[in-house]
Design a protein around this nucleic acid. Structure first.
Length: 110
DNA sequence: GTACTGACCAGAT
DNA sequence: CATCTGGCCAGTA
């Protein structure tokens, strides 16, 4: 197995790309699927380094609390929420969604 | 080499 | 529900 991959970002992006519409995944879940297990932070960095215009549905990635990690007032935060709603996801009163309902459950897909 | 930070997570109080 | 604590990995000073 590779120890330090130079393309962890790509790996993470690929996993994110596997998230089906209408569902979301937590940073920890993505990390686990990517084989990084405990590197949820690395996932956040990868998304932050994610270039604009990429086909990666980064908006389907939220934190373990079912909330958008991005700070309020930023375009990214607004965009993410709008996109999720467009996918059919409904937010609760404040900015949290029901992970029990929308969490992506990886199966035999890889 | 150490120290601090960050789109994090889980458990305890 | 709010706050704190320890852990995890990678980047930067």
């Amino acid at each position: 197995m590779f120890k330090h991959d130079p393309d962890l970002n790509q790996l993470i992006w690929q996993v994110v790309a596997l998230i089906p519409p209408g569902k979301v995944a937590t940073y920890g879940d993505v990390a686990r699927q990517a084989g990084l297990a405990k590197a949820a932070r690395r996932v956040g960095l990868a998304l932050r380094q994610l270039p604009q215009g990429s086909k990666i549905p980064w908006h389907r990635v939220v934190n373990a609390q079912g909330r958008i990690s991005l700070p309020d007032g930023t375009a990214s935060q607004y965009t993410q929420r709008e996109r999720l709603e467009a996918e059919g996801i409904v937010f609760r009163g404040n900015k949290s969604l029901d992970l029990r309902q929308y969490r992506w459950e990886p199966g035999g897909a890889e």
